[in-house]
């Protein structure tokens, strides 16, 4: 337990906040790498997921891609990209984009797929165009699952962004790798605690957000179900 106290003292030491290797700069780098990777991954995966969910074609390919990429070790991907395009921030960002795509893709198409087909058909029969169906019906109803997908992608990327420092890409992982190189366990542990705290903070923020984005009408429906249902279905409705 003494080791943990030392690491917390390291984090609280004001000397470790300023400068290019301070906690402040490393935290901003960490967030920046994560956000850039997530935005690129979202720009690719979300429209593709909507297309698959709306048209219903290409689902098998999407499942295959999501499953296959999951088996790909990120450390190996960063290593091979690092060799081909050099050390720095580009190789980790490409690797994190690959890491984030499966969850986002799955969230986007699963959200559309989970919608009752009759709702989509009624929207079509009252004269909505395909674009209106996507924008006003499928998107709001599929939003909770999409946010769920973005949530797991974000958590994965924030967690794995630690490995950016493995090829000098910066971020909070820098403390871990510097500690490993200099055999300074206090610094490694302090870096670890910082990354863990950041990941848990994001997890908390997302679980709050996910509750907020359920459309008002859907939430009202759930509430009635909770009141009238048996104890078991009430538990499932949550």
């Amino acid at each position: 337990m003494n080791l943990i106290v030392d690491a917390i003292a390291w984090i609280l030491d004001p000397a470790h906040y300023g400068g290019p290797n301070g906690i402040g700069v490393r935290l901003i780098e960490h967030l920046w790498i994560s956000v850039v990777s997530l935005v690129i991954a979202g720009a690719i995966a979300i429209p593709a997921g909507f297309l698959i969910g709306h048209t219903g074609t290409g689902r098998a390919a999407a499942v295959l891609v999501s499953g296959g990429v999951r088996a790909l070790p990120t450390l190996g991907l960063i290593s091979i990209l690092g060799l081909s395009i050099g050390i720095g921030v580009q190789a980790p960002i490409i690797a994190f984009v690959v890491l984030a795509i499966p969850s986002m893709l799955a969230g986007a198409y699963a959200g559309f797929e989970a919608i009752d087909r009759r709702i989509v058909d009624s929207a079509r029969s009252v004269g909505m165009t395909e674009w209106q169906i996507v924008g006003r019906v499928e998107l709001p109803l599929g939003l909770p699952l999409l946010i769920g997908g973005i949530r797991s992608a974000t958590l994965q990327v924030i967690a794995t962004a630690t490995l950016a420092a493995y090829i000098s890409g910066g971020g909070l992982g820098s403390f871990i790798f510097l500690g490993l190189r200099t055999n300074d366990y206090t610094q490694m542990l302090a870096g670890s605690i910082l990354v863990i705290a950041l990941a848990i903070a994001f997890e908390g923020a997302f679980s709050a957000l996910q509750r907020l984005v359920v459309p008002a009408g859907v939430r009202a429906g759930q509430r009635t179900k909770v009141r009238s249902g048996s104890p078991r279905s009430a538990a499932e409705a949550e």
């Binding site: 337990m1 943990i4 958590l155 924030i158 630690t162 542990l189 605690i193 863990i196």
Partner: peptide, 23 residues
Amino acid sequence: GLLYAIPSLPLFLALPAIIGTGL
């Protein structure tokens, strides 16, 4: 759910401090 949010490398580094194994 929270456990799954903890990054792997930091967890591998923090476990020795908690359970007293070698790094």
